[in-house]
């Protein structure tokens, strides 16, 4: 039988995949993909806890996380487009302009 810990382990695995992506990616668009993976992992954990404790609070938090992710993507992609217009690249190593 599938218990709460199964879902939490899957969620932690997906979260660590996303975290690994955040650590190793140098391209800003790919970095955004990795953050989306992390947000989805947390949503799974919230929905699972909400189901196994018969409590709706977890689902509420998942809704607000989806809303925050949507606005993050809207603003972030706008900033990415401005950056690409200015520098012609999305690589973080090339964008480090405060190297002194």
């Amino acid at each position: 039988m599938i218990g709460l810990s199964h879902y939490l382990i899957v969620s932690a695995l997906i979260f660590s995949i996303g975290l690994m992506g955040v650590l190793r990616r140098r391209n800003l668009l790919m970095l955004f993909f990795a953050t989306e993976v992390m947000l989805n992992a947390v949503n799974i954990a919230f929905a699972a806890i909400s189901h196994y404790y018969n409590d709706l609070t977890g689902q509420m938090f998942a809704f607000f996380i989806i809303a925050i992710a949507a606005s993050e993507v809207a603003v972030g992609l706008g900033i990415l487009i401005v950056l690409y217009k200015k520098h012609g690249t999305l690589d973080l190593d090339d964008l480090a302009s405060m190297k002194g």
Partner: peptide, 19 residues
């Protein structure tokens, strides 16, 4: 959250819409 989405929409349009 609705207000935040509105602000994000305006910000996205303004940031991406230039040139």
């Amino acid at each position: 959250a609705a207000l935040m989405l509105l602000v994000a929409m305006i910000a996205g349009i303004i940031l991406a819409g230039k040139k």
